[in-house]
Design a protein around this nucleic acid. Sequence first.
DNA 1: TCAATATTTGAAGTTAACGTAAACGTTATA
DNA 2: TATAACGTTTACGTTAACTTCAAATATTGA
Lengths: 131, 131
Amino acid sequence: MLHGAPYTITELAEAFEVTARTLRFYEDCGLLDPERRGRTRLYSERDRKRLRLALRGKRLGFSLEEIKEMLDLHHARPGQVTEPDALRARIEAHRARLTQYREDAEIALDWLDALEARLDRLVPGAARRAG
Amino acid sequence: MLHGAPYTITELAEAFEVTARTLRFYEDCGLLDPERRGRTRLYSERDRKRLRLALRGKRLGFSLEEIKEMLDLHHARPGQVTEPDALRARIEAHRARLTQYREDAEIALDWLDALEARLDRLVPGAARRAG
DNA sequence: TCAATATTTGAAGTTAACGTAAACGTTATA
DNA sequence: TATAACGTTTACGTTAACTTCAAATATTGA
């Protein structure tokens, strides 16, 4: 339970509110690679960090494959980067996508504000906080 | 082709870079409701706007069902809103999700910056713009 | 009018990201 | 030692959001 101790699969799953099945599935996809004591998985801080990044990527709508690519690049050693220009292009694409997402989120938030205002007009008598 | 003219299904599909089949599918889901001349669909500006909103919602990871709910609420008349408190709660949930989303996008963009910097170090000789 | 092109419907297939179930091994403890 | 709690693998099932295909029908240009 101490900080830095390896986590069991259920501990990590509960901490991140995913199922153990999901963690095993992520391992099959190459997102995680926990050590083993016998057959049992033991997750390190590194796995924890990778999982955190993976889940953020997932919330943003990236596929597990894309997430894997980014995580792998993050841990790549000099010799491993075979086509840097292609990678740069992909990073640019991701950046464009994220910028679009951020903009979409802004617009959608404004839209929600308008929607709620409209709801207030449609249903006047309702309770409202901090009006 | 003039502004405001009704669109054929292929025109609208090309304009938004989706397939015609997708537009019919969205109609089945209740997201669109084009008029008909005979059996042929004719899409209005209203459909265009709904489609734009729908695709943004999709990029943001909302399900078609959630998108439909929001679109319907957007066009709802006074009598139609049956459970305003529940709706307000859902709007709040959407807002929280979008706020998280925007934050995730920020963090991911920073992360991409760091990733690219790392790539520059791993592969030094590469071309770089506006360094 | 007639061929070429566009649109329709229905149904079945696809993919990602898991969920669910079966059958089994391992460990703690009463 | 048994029994519960947790872990494992393998394999099949599920859902959303489409795509692909087929076959019929409609529209348009010469």
